[in-house]
């Protein structure tokens, strides 16, 4: 097993040049082994969606800087020419967007939308295309494949639309699927169902996956490793079980604590408060220097205000960007 994707010091900034620029990704590095699932955890504004699109070289119109390297199958996707990227997108690496109702063409039958992906990657012949489209849809739908293929997105439920997106993503047999909040807009039971689809496919197709979400609980039992993103930087990266069971970065720890436990004991009259992280991570609330989490951190020290923490190893495969763990 070698690594299939290596992201090195990825930096992406938006908006006006100079001081007004918003650094969505500020030096992110990680590796992905083949058939590995990397969970990316981050709140809105952490750069997690930018990470998803940047890997495929899909930059917003107002992107001003994109540096670093995205190494995939021996080439740097950041330096790739448009037609090279086009051949990789959807075929070798595919992307699943968060809002299934927005990510599908509103006036095209969903079967055709799957077919378009196949056709874009060189599949020819009407009957071959139809055949393959049906096969792909059958991998994500138990029944009624025909009816669904003929439907328009607005005639399907949220869960069905999400399955169509998954079908598009796996149609050409990619080795890496990036899913950006694939269940955020779904009902809890549908969410579980879709997570089940991801697990089954991953096992069956041997996919490498980057699973991006704001909800750490979704990653338990899903991800092999976990990358915690805060303000465009890696706060913590390590084996999923280790990070979820004993989070090291103060941000990860507070985040995990802020989720209401399902079975807390009987309550005495007073309602308990959840341990929450004060403040927010909007660009305007971030400090000009030092650790980006410092203003909200319950364990801040003097050094955090002035110096940037570097990633340090707390165990062989677990790194944290926090001064608490330096000199250990």
């Amino acid at each position: 097993m070698g690594s299939i994707l290596e992201v090195r010091d990825l930096r992406v900034a938006y908006g006006p040049r100079g001081r007004g620029a918003f650094r969505a990704l500020d030096g992110v590095s990680f590796c992905l082994e083949s058939e590995e699932v990397l969970g990316v955890l981050g709140e809105s504004g952490s750069g997690k969606s930018t990470l998803a699109t940047s890997i495929l070289g899909l930059f917003r119109a107002n992107t001003i800087v994109a540096t670093g390297a995205v190494l995939f199958e021996g080439s740097d996707l950041l330096q790739a020419k448009p037609d090279e990227l086009q051949r990789i997108r959807g075929k070798r690496i595919s992307l699943i967007f968060q809002e299934p109702s927005m990510a599908l063409h509103p006036t095209m039958r969903v079967g055709r939308q799957v077919q378009q992906v196949l056709a874009a990657h060189g599949m020819k012949g009407r009957s071959a295309l139809n055949q393959k489209t049906r096969e792909v849809l059958e991998t994500v739908f138990m029944e009624e494949t025909e009816r669904i293929a003929r439907s328009y997105p607005h005639q399907l439920s949220g869960g069905q639309r999400q399955r169509v997106l998954i079908a598009q993503a796996i149609a050409c047999g990619p080795s890496l699927v990036i899913a950006d909040e694939p269940t955020a807009s779904l009902d809890p039971t549908t969410q579980m169902e879709i997570l089940g689809v991801f697990r089954a496919l991953r096992k069956r197709l041997g996919l490498g996956m980057i699973f991006i979400t704001h909800n750490p609980a979704l990653l338990a039992g899903m991800a092999d490793r976990l990358l915690v993103l805060y303000a465009g930087r890696v706060a913590e990266l390590g084996p999923a079980e280790e990070v979820l069971a004993s989070p090291k970065h103060p941000y990860t720890r507070s985040l995990l604590e802020s989720i209401p436990p399902l079975l807390d004991g009987p309550r005495d009259g007073n309602k308990k408060k959840l341990p929450s992280i004060p403040g927010d991570s909007r660009p305007s609330s971030l400090p000009g220097a030092g650790c980006p989490f410092e203003p909200r951190c319950p364990e801040r020290m003097d050094i955090c205000k002035t110096r940037d923490p570097q990633l340090v190893n707390v165990s062989q495969s677990h790194t944290v960007s926090c001064f608490r763990y330096e000199n250990q």
């Binding site: 992307l95 378009q116 993503a169």
Partner: peptide, 28 residues
């Protein structure tokens, strides 16, 4: 600017198809 076009681009659909088969019908 619609997300479904970004999604289609992410699937490696060519610029031409994107403009004439995806964007134009949606703007119709």
């Amino acid at each position: 600017d619609a997300p479904f076009l970004l999604a289609a681009e992410g699937h490696g659909i060519s610029r031409r198809t994107l403009l004439y088969r995806y964007a134009l019908p949606a703007a119709a």
